[in-house]
Simulated scan of single mutants.
Amino acid sequence: MHDSSLSRRHVLASGLAAGLSVLAGCGGVGNDTATEGADTALRLSLAQVDGPLRERYVHEREEPDDNWDVQALDAALNDESYTTQLRKPFFADPDDPAYVVHEGTYYQLGSVIVDEVTETHPVLRLFEPAEDPERTIDGGEDGPLPEADQRAIQIAQMAARARGNAGGYPVGLVQRGGYVYRSETARNDSELLAEDGPDYVTYRDTTYEVAVSREQFHEPVYRPTAEPVADDPERMEAILTATFVGARVSQTDLSTEAQRILAEASADEYSETHPFSDAYAELLRALDKRAYIDGNIRKDAGVRSTQDEMIRYEDVYYEYILRFSTEPET
């Protein structure tokens, strides 16, 4: 185990950690003002979902999702005591549930918080050097650092690049403006965490100053759950449809022109600028996207720059995306 005493690098990090703010990336269009010389277009595209939803959302007990905690699955199905710390055992919540079928019964998987623990973990942050370093070390895949440190640098540099810039970084990877060493194996293998570790690293031709601090984290403790919800495929399909599918549309509900737009969006993409044609407005109403129809669409409550949802058209499922973009004036 490396010495946990604070070096100059650790002191630097502890002084800066409190002042760091989390920068979250935003998707879609970030400005409510249309680009000069361009009109705002609403684009629609569809992709057919092959087969029943069970094939997409339900896993066999013998073939669980690779991200699941298999021990948690066994415990939940057998009503045994088991907990996970920090991460949900099935990465599932009410808005994005997970399902498994076992001996003919379908279960919805989830978890409940049963406790909280306080842990201390090292946090790696990277900063622009205050002066030209005399010595640096390659932090990339071809460098000499252990794999755990290479991953830490790869993630921490995302936060370093994002400071002061629009665009953000992947919040699921970056935490507290850097990378958190939660694995004991990674901590033991790390050279960056050592008292005599490098003060500077280079990643993709950019040099960063290394800062390491040890900080407290309050982490939830989860108990896995498995709730039986169906005992036949048809009822399971109905549950999945109710959970994931929005509008149900049939050809008899649409005019010939609206059907043509839907076919074009399925084959490639369809777009119009506002004000929309009668057929496009008709289709948006059928999709229950009425808020897009009026003239102030980008400021309406509940209207995001991008929406990705699922519909059933006749007896076929489709994923569809509505997104704003700009089209140059011709």
Rank of each mutant, 00 (worst) to 15 (best):
Y280H: 11
Y280E: 07
D308I: 08
R304S: 14
T306V: 15
S305M: 07
E314Y: 05
I293N: 01
P275R: 09
D268K: 15
Q307I: 09
R248G: 14
H274S: 15
S255M: 09
S250D: 14
K289I: 00
S266Y: 00
S266R: 12
E269N: 09
S277T: 12
G295H: 11
A265H: 05
Y318D: 00
N296G: 12
S277Q: 05
G295W: 07
R304E: 13
S277Y: 06
I293M: 02
T306P: 02
A301R: 14
D294K: 13
Y313D: 00
R248Y: 12
R285T: 12
D308R: 14
T252M: 09
D300Q: 14
D268P: 03
Q307T: 12
D294G: 13
L262W: 09
G295N: 11
M310T: 11
S277G: 12
F276M: 10
Y292M: 03
I311R: 03
T252C: 01
R312K: 14
Y292L: 14
E264S: 11
S305G: 15
E257Q: 15
S255T: 15
A265C: 09
M310E: 03
T252V: 12
K299V: 07
D253A: 14
T273A: 11
S266Q: 09
Y320G: 03
Y320F: 12
T256D: 13
A286M: 03
D315I: 00
F276L: 10
S266D: 09
E314W: 04
S255R: 11
K299L: 05
A286G: 03
R285E: 07
Y320H: 08
L284D: 02
G302D: 06
A291S: 11
V249I: 15
R312D: 00
A279D: 07
R312F: 00
L262F: 15
R285V: 08
Q307R: 13
R248A: 15
H274M: 10
E264C: 02
L254P: 07
Y280K: 11
A265Y: 05
R248L: 15
R285W: 04
Q259T: 12
Q307F: 05
K289R: 15
A291I: 00
Q307N: 10
R312A: 08
E272P: 04
G295Y: 08
D288P: 01
R298T: 15
E269G: 05
L262E: 03
I293Y: 02
E257M: 09
G302W: 04
D268Y: 10
Y318H: 13
A291Q: 11
Y270T: 06
R260V: 11
Q259P: 10
Y317A: 00
G295V: 06
A258N: 07
M310D: 02
M310H: 08
T252Q: 13
E309W: 03
A279I: 05
K299G: 05
Q259N: 14
D294H: 10
H274A: 13
E269C: 04
Y320C: 05
E257P: 09
F276W: 07
T273W: 01
E272Y: 06
T256C: 06
A279P: 07
L254D: 02
R312H: 04
E269F: 09
E309C: 03
Y320I: 02
A286L: 03
A263M: 09
Y320E: 00
A265M: 04
A281L: 06
L262P: 05
Y292E: 01
T256G: 10
Y313L: 05
M310C: 08
I261P: 03
R312S: 06
D253C: 04
T256W: 10
E269D: 06
D253W: 04
Y292C: 02
I311P: 02
Y270C: 06
